[in-house]
């Protein structure tokens, strides 16, 4: 099996990064970024998720099959969201 290459020191460094990004999210709650307010929050969350998936969940050193499964999960979530939104965003809502 592909051996994970992470060391405890690396885990602690990634943890420090995750805490810093959390502090950034909490701080951003108090600033008006206009149209980028939602995008900033989700962008930071995406970065945190990527750190956890790649290092804590060993995808970085995982087999190609694991990459395929992880990415296909995201791909199908994309289909769910995008096809729903093509309907919702192009409908003229009355109410």
């Amino acid at each position: 099996m592909p051996q994970p290459v992470e060391t405890p020191r690396m885990y602690v460094a990634i943890f420090a990064g995750l805490i810093a990004l959390t502090a950034a999210t909490v701080a951003l709650c108090h600033f008006d970024l206009g149209a980028f307010h939602g995008a900033a929050g989700l962008g930071i969350a995406g970065a945190k998720a990527a750190l956890i998936v790649l290092f804590f969940m060993h995808v970085r050193s995982g087999s190609r099959l694991i990459w395929v499964i992880a990415l296909s999960g995201l791909f199908w979530l994309g289909i769910l969201l995008s096809l729903t939104l093509t309907d919702v965003l192009t409908r003229s809502w009355s109410m």
Partner: peptide, 13 residues
């Protein structure tokens, strides 16, 4: 991690 911005960060505090 995704629930944090989606639930607590919609508006400006």
């Amino acid at each position: 991690i995704f629930l944090l911005p989606l639930l607590y960060m919609v508006g400006v505090r």
